[in-house]
Structure formats: C-alpha cells, structure tokens
Amino acid sequence: MDKYFILIIPGLIMGTFARVHMMKSDYRQYPTYPRGYLSHFTLGFIAAGLGAVAVPALIEKEFSAITFLALAAQQFREVRSMERESLDNIEITEMVPRGTAYIEDIAKTFEARNYMAIIVSLVTATVIYICIILKINRYMSIFLGMALGLITHIFIKRMIHGQEVGDIADVKEAKITFDGPILKINGVVIMNVGLQNKRDIYLSNGLAVEIIPKDENAIVYLSNIGQRQAIQHNAANQLGIRKDVDEPELTPIAKRNSENGNIVMAITIMKPNIDALIEVVKGTPLLETSKRKPLDSVVGLRLMRSRKRV
C-alpha cells in the first residue's frame, strides 16, 4: 500500500491547491465568509482525494472503484444546487437582485471547480505512475507529475474563465434627459418618473451608459434579460446605489434600443463617477446561459457570406 502514497499525496496536494487557488475573494464577496471558505476547501480536498485514489485503484484492478467517481459527480451536482439554493434564498435581501441567470452561472462555476480539482489530481497521479513505469527517478517523477498537474490547472482555469462585457461591446457615457416625466437616455425611453424630487435625484446623482455591441452575436448576447440584470447588480453593488427599498423608481433599468440592439442603462449613485461605472460594466462577466451564436447558424453563415460578397 505504501508504494501508492507517492501517487496519492502529490495528487491530493495539487488537486487541493487547484481548488484553493480558485477561491478568490473579490467584489462578488462570495464566498468570502470563513465558513464558506472552509466548506469549499473541504469539498475541494475530497474531490482531489477521489481523483488521486482513482489511479492506484485502477492499478490494483479494482474497477469498481471507478463508481466512486460517479458518486463524486453526483455529490458535486449537489454543490451546484446548494449554491443555487442559498443564493436564491438571499436574493430578496439584495437591493438590486442578481437575477436567476447570474445565480445559475455562479452555481455552475462552483460545480466546475470541484471537477477541476478531480482532473488535476488525476493527471498528477497518472503522470507520476507513468514516470515510475518508465523507471524515472522517484523525485523527478513527483516533480514531473506536479508540473503537469499545474499545467492542467492553468489550462482548465483559462478554459473556464469566461468573457466579459468589455470583450464584446463598447461602453460609452450616455446622457440622461427628461421629456416631461419621461426619463430618456440618448433618446431611448426608459420609464415614467412622476415625482419631481426623484427626477432631480436622477439629474444630480444619475449616470448613464450606452453599451454598443461589436457584432451580431453580441447583440443577441446583451439582449438577454439575465445578462442585463447581472450588469445592473454589479454596478449597484460596486458603486453604491443611491436608493432605499421604498424608492423603487431609482432601481437601475437597462433597456434595449430595439432599432440597433444597443443597451442603455441609468443608475443613481452616491458618488457618481462615470469612469468607474464604465469599468464596472465592462468587467461584468458574460453569463454562459445568455450565450448565443447566431452567426454560426446556417442562416447566420449565409448572411455573413452574402455580406462579404457585397
């Protein structure tokens, strides 16, 4: 049994490291609380353990051990529903809700990170085993295994790192105007604000941006209501919205200019700074669930070809 520890321990370390490395605490503040860290660290450790133990099990021809991986997959699907449920539960306490699409995206990310821990530890253990078969020095094998595990981690990290709004669209400052009670941004009607003092807040503390998609794919991407909700949530969360629960007219609304697919959004902020708002909007992650690629469809490709010919 001892001979397998050389496979299991480095695999376990690399898998756990991969999970811990993905636990960053940034503006999302999720899961920054120590309890959140601990539960995800433990799950990551278990995932890494499963990946690392799979290799010795196969060497010993314990093929039934592979069913544990299926069990693990089931377990990590639980992680997804756990995250979804907890975010759903706190949704009503958010000033500007995340929206179901954003929640789903976060939950999926958490699930995927556990799979990453399994894969990294599996790769590490496999490489070490292959090196030992090839009669490479023991320390060298561990080093090679860990190096390849690290490369796998970096590769998967790059792969699952999604795009941001700034990658597919330009974000520019827009102008808030009132036509009587009608709030308009660059001429697009947003909403009817009845009270004069609320209009004054929009004029003094309000900022607006216009998000201009770079291509047809981006137009469809940004038309998704979940994506727009995510942008609103991020902007409100990071810049400090000037609003309380009894002022629903100050809730940020992102509307679509149905002529050209541009998105306009107005938000009231305590200390308005347009550069910060543009940066936040650009940095909002693009949700997997809102991703569409109409240009890759048969019709889209035909349209592209005919456009090139012209």
Binding site: G194, D246, P248
Partner: peptide, 13 residues
C-alpha cells in the same frame, strides 16, 4: 409621494 412611500411603489405622471 406619501402613498408611494407607504406602499413601496412608483409614482407615474
């Protein structure tokens, strides 16, 4: 404004 505050609702003109 008073009624809207009580009911957490929006005033439209």
């Amino acid at each position: 404004e008073g009624i809207a505050k009580i009911l957490n609702s929006v005033v439209h003109d």
